[in-house]
Design a protein around this nucleic acid. Structure first.
Lengths: 142, 142
DNA sequence: GGTACAAGCTTCAGCAGGTAGAGGTTCAAG
DNA sequence: CTTGAACCTCTACCTGCTGAAGCTTGTACC
């Protein structure tokens, strides 16, 4: 029987976060001691590790929910799991592409900066006049 | 005198978002008509465009606040603006690196998947056993 | 001048994916 | 039996918006 702090240390997940996962139904409701503290089995540790690994690979909590559901039905074809992973891969590739465009632009800004006065600052100038340089209007915060 | 909808269309920013920027003090408080509707000058349009371009380059609202402050004091050295941009560049580069590691891992998962049953699914297996493959424990949601 | 209706207004709530803190209780080692 | 670290719940907050409810204003047309 593991306490929540043990799970936390073993998986590098904050205690609060584990409780949060329980709250949103991603972790099963843990058993409790007489005093009301959560106690876990090894399988809960495995499940949490699975969640964390998936998060590290950028899967959304919703995708992880799907993956966990799949993993619970071992007889089925894994085509669904594969397609979730594929979807994720595509997303990651898109993000990389966008970030590389940003990087290029930022580099241009930084390189062109001559350290003079703000009035002639290339950085600020580029931010002002940066018309449509990124075609994807909604590509913010990626 | 421009209405909020005009600013919205010209910059590709939602009306709500413009009001939000005013609320958090990123845009100046707009003048109002007798009936209480916001009216803007060209300079407000420029400021909003600056904000949007900066957001497209991934700057946080806080960084943008700093950049706007700098831009308002034209006599100063632009070293600060440069360092904000540098900081942003470093962040973007780190994100790209991490995403590339993710991509590699996802690709491995997807390629190894043989489409058989969930019980032997490589995707799920890798998610389960993905021990410390990403050294940076806090590198989530990049 | 009257009317229709698009566009504006405020306020509140919610999204992801957690994190932080207050204020109180329990567990386990010594 | 005491101490104190670890646990509990609950609420609020973070970023960067977005949507909706319910109401008012501006303007174009007749």
């Amino acid at each position: 029987m593991l306490a929540i702090g043990t799970l936390s240390k073993k998986t590098g997940t904050k205690v609060q976060t584990i409780r949060y996962y329980e709250q949103i139904g991603l972790m099963n409701e843990a058993g409790r001691t007489a005093g009301g503290q959560r106690r876990y089995f090894e399988k809960d540790l495995d499940r949490l590790a699975f969640i964390r690994h998936s998060r590290q690979l950028g899967f959304s909590l919703e995708s992880i929910r799907e993956l966990l559901d799949l993993a619970d039905r071992p007889g089925q074809s894994c085509a669904d799991a594969d397609s979730i992973a594929q979807r994720q891969l595509v997303q990651v590739e898109q993000r990389i592409k966008r970030l590389q465009a940003l990087k290029k632009e930022l580099k241009r800004m930084v390189v062109d900066c001559n350290g003079e006065s703000v009035a002639h600052c290339k950085v600020l100038e580029i931010l002002r006049d940066h018309d449509e340089c990124l075609t994807d209007h909604n590509a913010i915060g990626s």
